[in-house]
């Protein structure tokens, strides 16, 4: 088990630019039933954000409901139906939290215990793998567990 390295279980994952339309990112996730997205910028080779699906779902939650979750129950059906449409014209940068979140990143030669520890600690079902400071791919929780059981 100790011999398996992060780069051996890495998966290719959709990478989206931070300035691309938020609606496209939501569509990509929905149509391909993905676990999440990797967000990058034009200025860096390392990921800007790792967004599990649950965080992408957050895109359609209006900011004021995020401020006061109790208001979710007050939303009428017609308002709820328009929630995704409100993303029109917005970029991923617009809907990401203004304060940059911690990005779970492991090195390509890290062991799966190191990867598992990071996933558990930051409660993220996916982490980015970098090799020579460049994004190499992503490891999902299910892939990691499969590798662990195989050993």
């Amino acid at each position: 088990m100790g011999c398996v390295r992060a780069e051996e279980i890495v998966e290719e994952f959709p990478v989206v630019n931070i300035d691309s339309p938020a609606l496209d990112a939501v569509r990509l996730l929905a149509e391909h039933r993905l676990n999440g997205l990797v967000v990058v910028t034009n200025t860096s080779d390392t990921p800007y954000a790792i967004l599990p699906a649950s965080q992408v779902v957050r895109f359609i939650v209006p900011g004021y409901v995020q401020e006061d979750p109790g208001l979710a129950g007050v939303f009428t059906e017609s308002m709820a139906d328009q929630a995704a449409a409100k993303l029109g014209g917005k970029t991923i940068r617009d809907v990401l939290p203004k304060q940059r979140q911690y990005v779970p990143v492991v090195d390509a030669d890290d062991t799966i215990i190191e990867v598992a520890e990071l996933m558990a600690r930051v409660r993220s079902p996916l982490v980015a793998v970098v090799k020579k400071r460049r994004l190499h791919g992503v490891i999902t929780a299910s892939r990691l567990l499969a590798a662990a059981l195989k050993d």
């Binding site: 209006p62 900011g63 004021y64 409901v65 401020e67 006061d68 208001l71 007050v74 939303f75 308002m79």
Partner: peptide, 14 residues
């Protein structure tokens, strides 16, 4: 402010 401002935004959105 934390209680009333989100309601205001909801109403203005509507």
């Amino acid at each position: 402010v934390l209680l009333i401002a989100p309601v205001t935004l909801l109403v203005c959105d509507a």
